[in-house]
Design a binder for these strands. Sequence first.
DNA 1: TAAAAGTATGTATTCGTATGCACACTTGAC
DNA 2: GTCAAGTGTGCATACGAATACATACTTTTA
Lengths: 350, 350
Amino acid sequence: MTKKPTPIKRKRPTMYDVAKLAGVSQPTVSRVLNGGEMTGRISEKTTERVLEAVQQLGYRPNAVARSLRTQRTQTIALLIADLSNGFYHVMARAVQDVARQHGYEMLISNSDHLYENERHFCEIVLGRGVDGAIMVPIRLSNADLDHYVSQTHIPFVVLAEYIVHPNIDVVFLNDERATYDATRWLIADCGHSKIGYLGVADYYPPGPRRRHGFLRALNDCGLEPDPRFMKMGDFTLESGRRAAHEFIAEGELPTALVIVNDLMAIGLILSLQEAGYSVPDDVSVVGFDDIPEALIVRPTLTTIAQDPHDIGEKMAKALFERLENPTLLARRIESFSTLRVRDSTKIRRP
Amino acid sequence: MTKKPTPIKRKRPTMYDVAKLAGVSQPTVSRVLNGGEMTGRISEKTTERVLEAVQQLGYRPNAVARSLRTQRTQTIALLIADLSNGFYHVMARAVQDVARQHGYEMLISNSDHLYENERHFCEIVLGRGVDGAIMVPIRLSNADLDHYVSQTHIPFVVLAEYIVHPNIDVVFLNDERATYDATRWLIADCGHSKIGYLGVADYYPPGPRRRHGFLRALNDCGLEPDPRFMKMGDFTLESGRRAAHEFIAEGELPTALVIVNDLMAIGLILSLQEAGYSVPDDVSVVGFDDIPEALIVRPTLTTIAQDPHDIGEKMAKALFERLENPTLLARRIESFSTLRVRDSTKIRRP
DNA sequence: TAAAAGTATGTATTCGTATGCACACTTGAC
DNA sequence: GTCAAGTGTGCATACGAATACATACTTTTA
């Protein structure tokens, strides 16, 4: 008779197994491992025996059981809007660094800008009982968020100026102001007056704010927005290319374009170049985000740089502050942008 | 005596609360919600009452408790080597799609190519009891992985040809062959003979294989590798720039370069251009990966395209097949690369 | 030298859910 | 009118660890 086909799982050892081997009770093992001074000290001899048994069995605490008992999972959840947007990598990394520093794990999810996915994420957060959540909501309304937040009692931090809620920390960029400043710079310092704007639909939260900053700058400089130069995309490179083709087809280009994000700006630049136009000689372009690709495209992209590391860090810190002190009130925290002038813009003297 | 300082959390409702409100027992609630036909059917009247109570209390099952009871978490873990590498986004997305399709959540982690992080990930996997794990190990040895895998009994899938283990599914690329083919194409079809290679240190797993493919092609075509044209980086764009500066400083360039990944290829191209060289007129460049930036850089990058979506999908599918059928033997699954010829290479007739 | 105060450990219970088993009640068959 | 075979529920327990409380033993104190 041959050996049995190996009963693949020998069960994972539990505290009871360790306790039995060490000749003590299960709680003693727990106390040795968690060392909570308050729990009662364990003699050195016992400690030693227990640790040896742990070693010998290769015991590892079961995080699920522990979570059930302690009501904390040592995990936070992070929802980002687009896994393929470089902006979020840096942010995610910053969050992860802070989390790890606090001994927490991070559950990342990706909404692809879809309402359904954002809701799904919240459901998970509620069901799985993570200890805190950080998200970049794009489609969720204040009411939606309130609905979820009121059911859970964990700290929530969002990157979204439009959210206003007594229990949610908000980190936000001053998009409106940043776009205003950049536009004004194009007009006042660079001498442009035929300026266009490539934005996104209003239901994307940063859409209205950035467009408004653009329009306000125009207005303050005594210019009228030209409807021929106002177009829309959807944050993707491809939509930037489409916009370029529209401009080309219509035969008239502005001398400068403010664009709602870098990816679209890059798409537009590539398509303009392929059609024989020059950036910045024919059109100056200003993007928004400062993703790594902004330094790869030629000309390098002038852009409004957000600081995703700073944003991630601020969000994570806010979260852990509230985890440690749940009575803390929700705050609104600003993260600043700066205009990085590169080669895609040039001074034009009429 | 005053009231306690407000126990801010009114506790989350449990099945008992639902049961009480509906006038049934807790197991009945469980059976209504899980509807497992085998469990015994519940009368329509009861079902209705229970569902109403669920609704009214806003009850949500506690995933932690459920996991403890069922010994499954409905979660898989994914470790990627570099969150800022576009290659992994697509892969992660593919994995997530398959996971979601099976009703599983995904815990993403990021190793930054660091040994410590890879180990940490395995520890988490063991402790937290995810149901399966997918990883891209870079530093972990076969022995390390064996150490971990032997302690857990969940399916593991890795993207790494160098791993050989009876309980680990391996998805791999035929790097050696792909590099061989590309090099041979440069020589035979494009007429290059002064060919260099920009690689990475041997402790990065794909390093030796890709270099070997390069050398084998040279050898098969009767060429000798020229040590002046063999350099190393570390996968980053910056290291590609450094290599370019070395070439320039040394004053002699090959007419074609095979480069271990796109990011380094792009860095090299940018630095060469800044120094006044032309790609592909002075040097033809072939990358590896086909990241999105390959289409942004000018000239567009000729590259060996991996198919990250295919890879992610294959890994996830392998994982779920073994989740559903644990007796399945571990397999080795190949994912194919194709050479995408773009503008960074040109034919040279001596 | 008995009582009080410490020390080290064990006992019992709890977290929220799933599930084997027992039980009561129907229905139909003989 | 008794028994077999369903139905629909409740009871008890288990998952693995943490913790309030009890207990045994030691030391100190009056």
